[in-house]
Design a protein around this nucleic acid. Structure first.
Lengths: 190, 190
DNA sequence: TATAGAAGTCAACATTCATTGACTTTTTGG
DNA sequence: CCAAAAAGTCAATGAATGTTGACTTCTATA
């Protein structure tokens, strides 16, 4: 019917960038509307409010089908994505968005649940094997931590290195995470 | 002189908890004052404003001298702290506070700089050895990521495990981080 | 006890925020 | 061409924020 889809798309684009860079609470609808060159009132009209707009951006954030593909090794998928500066920038933005909003009192629960349902649960099934739950948690921990240290904290040891060095660091940690074996025999003495 | 030190202390205590749990921007001075049973105006009077109060809480956040002590192994210090549920709760709160505020447009720069100056720079010197910068970054990444996955994301594989299991997971990742050796020979094939 | 200064209280301020309703412009359909 | 619906504009509202200044109460000292 209407041609308001363009307006909706502009709003979602501006909202995505704003929410990802500054977090939900620190982003004002007026700013989003200004960037999108759209009146503020249309946000409440089209998306029902700030929360509705955020939900609309969330659905597209966690779209990473290759990670769960049974044909590919998740480790290689991750390394490949992080080694390429272009895709790494996008992926790091997604992680930053998770980190910034996972504790927000208004949208934290939504972010955590969406992440678990759309990414982590399928990934756990994909990883499989014994203690898949444990190794998945360590896997995610490494990815989150590495992205934070690299982009947010900007430690030189990970932020000011060549892409292939960063890829090697990441591979080292990811493999360590997935190779964790918690057996009663205590293979690696502690 | 005055007896206002009690009021200052109550404000700092309430502010620390509030800032650490909800982040800087999502915390209102009125809430802090209410928790501390103190009038709001005294915050601006004693600390100059919201930012001043936040700075006051920051100075005590990064106090962890054992981590840099030349007598102790940083790995053991970390594991010991994380394995004990009591000290782990505090440490995890500190990390959550870092994560929540490191990207804040108002206090992010302050948090990052303070963290680097008071903790990371000395820790890098303590670690030493070749590629200390790289290994430090990986070390921090593991700690940040693990804490986030455990407390913030609450993945069962790290959040619903016995403390000693969590300690083993953490030791596994930390040692992998510090044992990273980026040589041209490419020791560990991928 | 009287008094100066600290400590604490209260109300108001200017801003910013999300949201709403009435209004105007544009596009569509007969 | 014209009415009806969609799309967009504008102003206002109520709530919440940090901050300020005037006021009152307490406390220590002479």
């Amino acid at each position: 019917m209407g041609n308001s889809d363009i307006t909706r798309a502009k709003l979602i684009a501006a909202a995505t960038q704003a929410f990802w860079e500054q977090g939900y609470s620190n982003t004002s609808l007026r700013r989003i509307a200004q960037v999108a060159s759209v009146d503020v009132a249309l946000i409440s009209r089209y998306f029902g409010g700030k929360l509705g707009l955020f939900k609309a951006t969330l659905t597209t954030a966690f779209d990473w089908p290759e990670l769960i593909s049974p044909d590919k090794d998740p480790v290689e998928v991750v390394i490949e994505k992080y080694a390429n500066p272009e895709s790494d920038a996008h992926q790091t933005s997604v992680i930053r968005m998770i980190v910034m909003n996972a504790n927000d009192p208004q949208v934290g629960e939504l972010v955590r649940q969406t992440l678990r349902h759309t990414v982590l649960d399928p990934l756990e099934a994909r990883i499989g094997g014994p203690q898949a739950s444990n190794r998945l948690a360590m896997f995610v921990a490494v990815l989150l931590g590495a992205s934070m240290v690299r982009q947010s904290l900007q430690l030189p040891g990970m932020a000011a290195v060549e892409p292939d060095v960063y890829a090697r660091q990441l591979r080292h940690l990811v493999e360590a995470a997935l190779h964790f074996d918690e057996g009663p025999g205590g293979r690696e003495q502690g």
